[in-house]
């Protein structure tokens, strides 16, 4: 019996998927939406904070990649600042024209529900998803990561 249980577990782990959950989240403008509705098609999902410099560099690199390659993808930025920093997040977003675009979605996760669900510490933690299924996962950001993003996005868009 034990060996069957082990076999079931192995099969489930091997074939189990990791997806963006269907859960209500709050956007920066206070609207409530379902998270996986934002990740239809190919998307980038990233955990970030205003004090996190690698996160800010990564957001810039993602935008440059989208511009240079005319990618039609959704970018979901899950903010992990404290609730008292909402004005800071708003002014940061307002200072970047592209963050106000329709393909960018800023989610406020100050009760850290998503942060804990995805073990996001340390940030940035970034996913590439296809129809909410996570196909690539990366932690941290250093120069050169944008080349890896490009490869993974091209692969995802070809599927």
């Amino acid at each position: 019996m034990r060996k069957y249980g082990f076999l079931v577990l192995v099969i489930s782990v091997l074939f189990g998927q990791s997806t963006i959950p269907s859960t209500k989240v709050r956007l920066l403008n206070n609207e409530t939406v379902n998270l996986n509705e934002l990740t239809n098609g190919v998307s980038i999902v990233s955990f970030w904070a205003t004090w996190c410099i690698p996160c800010i560099k990564e957001i810039y690199a993602i935008e440059k990649l989208i511009q240079d390659n005319s990618y039609d993808i959704s970018v979901v930025l899950i903010n992990t600042d404290d609730a008292g920093k909402i004005p800071k997040v708003k002014s940061f977003v307002n200072s970047k024209k592209y963050l106000k675009g329709d393909n960018y979605h800023i989610i406020m996760d100050y009760d850290k529900r998503l942060y804990k669900r995805f073990n996001a510490r340390p940030i940035p933690l970034t996913f590439i998803t296809i129809d909410s299924e996570i196909v690539y996962r990366k932690r941290g950001f250093v120069n050169g990561d944008e080349q890896i993003f490009k490869q993974e996005l091209d692969k995802a868009l070809d599927e």
């Binding site: 069957y4 074939f15 990791s18």
Partner: peptide
């Protein structure tokens, strides 16, 4: 029966997602 057992629980657990971090 054992194959039915494996198939049933595998399909149930395939709907289960795991994440772990160390």
């Amino acid at each position: 029966n054992k194959y039915i057992f494996i198939l049933f629980f595998s399909s149930l657990l395939a709907q289960v997602e795991y994440s772990s971090y160390l």
